[in-house]
Design a protein around this nucleic acid. Structure first.
Lengths: 192, 192
DNA sequence: CTAAGTTGCCTAAATGCTTTAGGCAAATGC
DNA sequence: GCATTTGCCTAAAGCATTTAGGCAACTTAG
């Protein structure tokens, strides 16, 4: 009996790769076992089950994405920072569609609170310090940016913007220009 | 043998209700059979299988949502129309989380092209006629609005905005104010 | 270096969802 | 009333999930 050297870490990482290949909701403990050339039951020592595996992949993706975003904004400010930050999200979604979908998994409140999700929120606030927003407008803006990054990435991955002009890259740049302009002139009071 | 009176229509509708109760990705042909008090195999005359069922629920949701959005914008223009339209999306997500998730299912290109998705795109363009955007800025704006509606609804359903101030309704209103302002002053050329 | 303990992977088995094949009975139409 | 279509059935095979219990291979202490 040869030991493959499984650990929770390695299982989750392989799960993330599998997600990128076949889609996050097609990730299965059985397929993972096949890839490790190991019996299914063996994985249950490292992962509580299918749901636990998915949650762990989600946490892993959130962490990885937060690391990338942090790298992207380091040493930048203002619009530069906004663009680098936004690009980190979009690029992650294009390079790792499965992990990106995983990062959007609904987590229960305690898990979410202990996840890298809070780093994402903090970084978004940091970006917004380059603009002149008072609380609670800053919170509204955090939610807007989250929605746009999340939504755009999701639609783009679903193929929503392919096969039609102008290309996605063009729209993305113009949307970021627009968001930058919006944040600089954020309407304090409802427009007439 | 009593006949229940199954049709594809009824099966799909029940599937949509099931999705709202247990979540779109927990929808199962078996559970549906249980609810109709019918054997599983019986459903396979009405639906090709699990994947087909999910796709049909997605198409149903897209249609229903398009109808609602169309009602919402009828007789309105400008910011009024924008808000009514956006609210239709958000309300649908809150009333029908499962169907709303279904509407975000990735469809293959031909299916998508034949779906109510194209009505959504057309309506979004109609909203934007109230603003002074030239092509291709209109397309960029369509994509931005799609991302925001999609993303906000998805994050809100995931519980992202609960348990923190200000409440989601407040943010939503301020975000729509901001989008309206943005569309009225859409930056034609990248800001410096 | 060996014995004891721990860990890693195994076999076995139950449960449940999916899907196909083929059959009988109820509704429908001539 | 009879034939056809349609609706739901039984049966069975395949695969994913999950738990229980076992043996072999590492690790560590004496």
């Amino acid at each position: 009996m040869v030991r493959v050297g499984l650990t929770t870490e390695r299982v989750v990482r392989a799960g993330a790769e599998l997600a990128d290949e076949v889609g996050f909701d097609q990730v299965t403990v059985s397929e993972l076992a096949r890839r490790f050339d190991v019996k299914v039951a063996s994985l249950y020592s490292h992962v509580k089950g299918s749901q636990d595996l998915r949650t762990r992949i989600a946490l892993f993706a959130l962490e990885e994405l937060a690391d990338r975003a942090a790298d992207a904004i380091a040493g930048r400010a203002g619009k530069d920072a906004l663009i680098a930050f936004a690009d980190a999200y979009r690029d992650y979604g294009r390079e790792h569609p499965g992990r990106s979908a995983a990062a959007r998994l609904r987590l229960d409140p305690e898990t979410a609170a202990a996840s890298a999700g809070v780093r994402h929120a903090r970084m978004t606030r940091a970006i917004l310090r380059g603009y002149d927003l008072t609380e609670p407008d800053q919170t509204h803006a955090v939610r807007l940016l989250g929605s746009v990054f999340h939504g755009y990435s999701s639609l783009e991955t679903a193929g929503g913007f392919s096969h039609s002009a102008p290309d996605s890259q063009e729209s993305w740049m113009r949307i970021l220009d627009a968001l930058d302009a919006l944040l600089r002139t954020w309407p304090t009071t409802p427009a007439p």
